[in-house]
Structures are given as C-alpha cells and as structure tokens.
C-alpha cells in the first residue's frame, strides 16, 4: 500500500559505546579484590546497592506511576531474609542471597492488593504505613532478636578476601539484573506498554494494555530487586536491625537520586546515584547543612528541570546510553 520500505533503528553509536563500557565495568567489579583496597570495595558495594534500589524505585514511580515512600519495607525484608536463612537454616550466606528475593515478593503481592485502590498521595502514604508496620512487627519478633537486630556470624567462616570476592560478584550480578533486566524489559513489548502507561494510563488501557496487571507486576518485580539489594547491602554490613533495615531514609535517598538524575529514564538513577554518592563522600561531614543543600538541589531541579540532570543533558546532546525507543526510517524503493 506504500511505495517505500522501512527500517527501524533501536541502537545508536552512543548506546553501543555505553553498553560496552557498562559491561566492561561490570566485569571489572569482581576483579577488585585483587587490586583495590577494602575501602574502595566497600564504596563500590554501597554504590551498586544505591543504583539498584534507585533503579527499582524509578521502575515503580517513573514507569508504573506508583510513588512509594515505603521501599524500605523490601530492603528490610530482603536483608532479614538473608540473616534468618543463614542463622536458622544454616545456609551459606552467599547462596542465600537469591533466596532473599522470595519474602519481598510474597509480601509485595498482598500489599499491592491493599494499596491498588489508592491513588497518588494516598498510595504514597499507604506504602509508608505498610513499611512502618513491617518495622514495628520485626522490632517485636523475638525470633529475629526484636529491636536489637541480628548479626551475620556465618560470615566468620570466610576470610576477608573471600568475602570481598563473593560480595563483588554479587554486586556485579545485582547491577546486571536490576539495570540490565530493566533495560531488556523496557525494550520488549512490555516496555512499550510501560512507557505508554508512564505517559497516559487511560490511553494505554484504551489501546489494549492491562494497566492493573502491569502495575501489579512492576510492584512485585521492584520489591524483589529492592530486596536483593537490601540483602547484599546488609551482608556487607554484617548486622541488621529494624531501625536500619526499615529506615524511611532509604526512601528519601531513592526520591533524591531519581528526581535529580531523571525520572522515567533508565540513565536517570545511575546519574543521580553517582551524584549523591560523590556528594555524600565529599560533603557528608558538613552534616545538617549538607542535607539542606541536597534538599535545595532537589527543589531547584524539580522546578526548573523536571526531567532531572539526564533530561537537561538530553536537551544538549541526544546520546542515550540505554536506548529503549524506536527510530523509523523510510527508504524509497529503487524500482517503480
């Protein structure tokens, strides 16, 4: 019916470079115990967990339209799963890490059914209340040492070097699953639906997208990714307590990283996490005044660049790292 053939491009030069660099960096992380200091490794573990948790929050808020201030519920649930599996079932902590995604998923499914009728701010408050309930319940459970928290003694069977090797491998896998997995999901048919929902859920439903089921799936997947990051983070800490695992500060960090980096873009949380992480290392010792500056920065970006730093950069140069879009090119046929 048309006189032209078409080509659909998905990658760009910038994305090929960025993805190659990203894979090389990921491969480099597990080699760190052989050349980097323990301090540097700790920093990379923390940064990996931040990126993963922020990317999951971006998936939830940026694509699913569900602004949660209670993702600490799943950080805590993932962390506690690991400790309980190790202490009570005697499992090797490293092998327990993937199992730590089960409890967050089991908690997320009924939580979503409770929260799904709530919209916007009510949803946010609902997630917060739920996270507080998890914190209070954990703080009163004698099996997990109530308010005093748990220690991961099983790590004592490994040398410091072995722990570092295990943790760096886990961090590389964490980033591969959360960032790489989100990338692959967004490029698929489901990603098309998620991006449409981000822009207009009513239109998306009238074009055949089951918005309710998509949101449920996103909520559960985000909980699992967040729980995985929580398990790795607290494994590195060797200790978890209700007040740290279920700390609402986790959600503040998510909101800061994603809002400043760029919401609804894959690159946003990475940019935001790098900024937050660097700023905290450099200026963290200023304490309260540093927090005020971070708050003001969020406010300014929300007011003047709702697309975050990545959105600002995108206006200058269209160099995506992880392209999920489609560029259509018409080519006239040579013959008649």
């Amino acid at each position: 019916m048309t006189a032209s053939t078409i080509l659909v491009h998905r990658h760009t030069l910038s994305s090929r470079i960025a993805i190659t660099v990203a894979l090389l960096l990921l491969a480099a992380i597990p080699t760190m115990p052989f050349w980097a200091s323990s301090g540097q490794i700790r920093l990379i573990i923390e940064l990996s967990c931040l990126i993963a948790i922020a990317q999951m929050w971006n998936l939830l808020a940026g694509y699913g339209g569900m602004v949660s201030v209670g993702q600490q519920a799943f950080i805590g649930a993932g962390g506690y799963s690991l400790f309980v599996l190790s202490v009570y079932a005697g499992l090797n902590p490293f092998w327990s890490v993937p199992l730590a995604m089960i409890l967050p998923a089991l908690l997320a499914a009924p939580s979503y059914l409770l929260l799904r009728k709530l919209d916007g701010p009510y949803f946010a408050i609902g997630t917060w209340v739920l996270a507080e309930v998890f914190r209070l319940v954990t703080g009163n459970l004698q099996v997990v040492n109530a308010g005093s928290g748990m220690t991961l003694r099983a790590m004592g069977q490994f040398t410091a070097h072995q722990r570092e090797i295990g943790l760096t491998i886990l961090c590389a896998l964490l980033l591969l699953i959360t960032v790489g997995g989100t990338f692959l999901m967004l490029r698929s048919r489901l990603g098309l639906a998620m991006t449409a929902m981000r822009d207009d859920p009513v239109s998306a439903a009238s074009q055949g997208v089951n918005v309710g089921r998509m949101r449920f799936g996103i909520y559960v997947v985000a909980a699992m990714g967040t729980g995985l990051a929580g398990a790795i983070y607290y494994m590195a800490q060797l200790r978890i307590s209700p007040s740290s695992g279920f700390d609402p500060y986790w959600s503040s960090i998510c909101i800061f990283i994603v809002m400043v980096g760029g919401i609804g873009r894959l690159e946003g949380p990475i940019v935001g996490a790098l900024l937050y992480f660097t700023a905290t290392r450099l200026f963290g010792h200023y304490g309260a005044s540093y927090m005020i500056v971070l708050g003001l920065l969020t406010l300014l970006i929300a007011l003047f660049s709702p697309g975050g730093l990545w959105g600002l950069f995108g206006k200058l140069r269209d160099w995506p790292w992880f392209p999920v879009g489609h560029r259509l090119e018409y080519r006239q046929r040579g013959d008649a």
């Binding site: 098309l192 991006t195 449409a196 998306a204 009238s206 074009q207 055949g208 879009g325 560029r327």
Partner: peptide, 27 residues
C-alpha cells in the same frame, strides 16, 4: 477503538511509538 476529544498522546514517546502500542496490544 477510540479517540479522545482532547487528544491524549503518549507525550514523551514518538509518533511512531504511539501507534506501536495500539498495534502490539489492541491488535
């Protein structure tokens, strides 16, 4: 299939991608 009185495009997606959603899901 329907259109909206006040158009409701997927604002940040391209025109082509707007159509892809309907073709992959509704159709």
């Amino acid at each position: 299939g329907r259109t909206y009185q006040i158009p409701r495009p997927y604002a940040k997606m391209t025109t082509f991608e707007n159509l892809l959603v309907a073709a992959r899901f509704a159709a």
